[in-house]
Write a protein that binds this DNA or RNA. Structure first.
Length: 279
DNA sequence: CTCACATGTTAAG
DNA sequence: TTAACCTGTGAGC
């Protein structure tokens, strides 16, 4: 259940364990077996994430493209691999010290050529976690769109790697209603949201969780019980519908946009009204 | 225990 | 717009 920071960590961990080594690649479950044979026993060159996509590069520019989707997991562990349990789509074994990785439940696990990889990258917007990201590419899309900023931030062709938590939280931190049309944003507003995403997501890479609440606003500081859930992170609005906003006390609201849940504070993030023209 | 839902995407209708 | 993918978790009985 990943946003960009999770995949960034995953790529880094795969790289640390296997890069430069001959790696055994198998598919205990069978669904990736044919492709696995083509890279099995070759050198794993690198692993990189772009947004929520991970590319594991093998010798001669063969790329295993992995997208975890909603349920996928790649578990890495030290030592020799135990017998595969359950639906292991891909198993990597190798490196020194020896370790292994088991991929399950991924939306995508496929062997691609360099050209096919380039095709996927070409459809992705800039990734706040990558040094080579050009945020003005995202801004161009935002300013030309009539669609809501809440939708644009989740559109991987606009910004790659942002998911539902970062979307909800960055909009809150910038007091912006999720349904505000992209084209009504000012350049400076988008630029500060981008910079915020860069910081928040790098923090996510460091800690492995999504924390977006300023220390002055932590539940403890506000005299409330901290919110603890499976995600472990501390957030302002994500999945806090019906509960009081840490800043103003208004009840957090929720709605559905393009099959995904929105969360926002109706007082801190008022509906955008275009400025009335003077008569 | 069963059930709904989830940090996501794609394809079919 | 809806279902499907296919896994884990938490809430409810």
């Amino acid at each position: 259940m990943p946003e960009g920071h999770t995949l960034f960590r995953l790529a880094r961990d795969v790289r640390d364990r296997f890069a430069g080594s001959v790696v055994s690649v198998t598919s205990p479950q069978g669904r990736f077996a044919e492709s696995a044979r083509l890279v099995d026993g070759t050198v794993l060159v690198d692993a990189q994430s772009h947004g929520k996509h991970v590319f594991v590069e093998f010798a001669e520019e063969r790329y295993v493209h992995v997208h975890l989707g909603l349920y996928g997991k790649l578990d890495l562990a030290d030592g020799p691999p135990p017998p595969a349990v359950g639906q292991v789509r891909m198993r990597l074994v190798g490196g020194s010290p020896p370790s292994y990785g088991d991929l399950r439940g991924a939306t995508a696990c496929e062997l691609l050529t360099a050209a096919q990889r380039a095709g996927i990258l070409g459809r992705l917007g800039p990734d706040p976690l990558r040094d080579d990201a050009d945020w003005t590419r995202a801004w161009t899309r935002v300013t030309r769109s009539r669609g809501p900023i809440g939708g644009l931030l989740m559109d991987q062709a606009v910004v790659a790697g942002v998911g539902n938590v970062y979307r909800a939280e960055v909009l809150f931190r910038h007091r912006m209603h999720p349904l505000r049309p992209g084209r009504t944003l000012r350049r400076g507003q988008f630029e500060s949201m981008w910079r915020d995403l860069v910081e928040l997501m790098h923090e996510g890479v460091r800690t492995g969780r999504i924390d977006t609440v300023h220390s002055a606003h932590t539940p403890e500081a506000m005299g409330r019980a901290p919110r603890v859930d499976a995600h472990g992170g501390e957030v302002y609005v994500y999945r806090r519908q019906g509960r009081p906003c840490y800043i103003c006390g208004a009840r957090i609201r929720t709605d559905v946009l393009a099959t995904r849940n929105l969360f926002w504070c109706p007082r801190c993030q008022p509906v955008f009204r275009s400025r009335a023209r003077s008569a």
